[in-house]
Design a protein around this nucleic acid. Sequence first.
DNA 1: CTTGAAAAATGGAGGGT
DNA 2: ACCCTCCATTTTTCAAG
Lengths: 154, 154
Amino acid sequence: MEETLDDTDIQLLKHLGADSKVTMKELAAKVNLSPSPVFERVKRLEANGYIKKYIALLDAEKLNFGLIVFCNIKLKQHDKSIGRSFVTDILRLDEVVECYNISGDYDFLLKVYARDMKHYQDFVFNKLGSVKSIGSTHSTFVMSENKNSYNINL
Amino acid sequence: MEETLDDTDIQLLKHLGADSKVTMKELAAKVNLSPSPVFERVKRLEANGYIKKYIALLDAEKLNFGLIVFCNIKLKQHDKSIGRSFVTDILRLDEVVECYNISGDYDFLLKVYARDMKHYQDFVFNKLGSVKSIGSTHSTFVMSENKNSYNINL
DNA sequence: CTTGAAAAATGGAGGGT
DNA sequence: ACCCTCCATTTTTCAAG
């Protein structure tokens, strides 16, 4: 299971990580092979979990979610059950796209997409406000997104 | 160009945002249509920019990038040319997957993927260290990722 | 939107190095 | 173990109604 990836595998992952709509034929040309071995390699990379899934990236701004906020959260207490119930509550919130348990002054970092400031205010007061385990929050607003490649650069 | 999306369009975006490997046939079944109109709608959503691109999501941990760090950065000065040169320098760094211009005490927030702490240390000292426009940095380490849906929840 | 058909891609069999 | 060349099947893509 813990086989090593050769250079061709890495190239395939790089290409698919940037554009998954390429055909096997095109991919094959990029790595100087015929479609068949490329097909088999990609299937293996999927089966072994190197490729988690394929998705379409949507334009948040065009879909009226123009505001990105990083919301730092401090819990009231730090026992395991409080942490778990916090995560359960947070996963339910549509506005929260990412959630991390972090080091430092705060316990969690959320990446939140909102339509506008009014929507974000409503999110903080009504949705976060009803999550009992939260002690305090600190919001950092995104003024512009300069880079988002979604994948590691192999 | 600024047409409104009907409920079917939203459903298509939701499905493709979660899994872009579905065939037009399967998509059609999900929205109770035949493949042809679904095909046309998806092409329109692509052409009008609602779908930005299609990518494979790679497993960073399996590819030996197990450490995620949010790196806050304060610039030395705040004029436009310094900010631009900072962004140019940052975009070159493979470890930086996301970069945001933010409100608050710091100017930029980077999401960084590193193999381990040693790699991150090297990144900060050698790569960030040679970006002249940086005044100071503050690193927040991710202990666990609890959610990452990559797309807004429509 | 539907039907339907041409063009293209997928997925695999069989054989070669 | 890895690759190639076919080829059947499925999917995509786009007419015409």
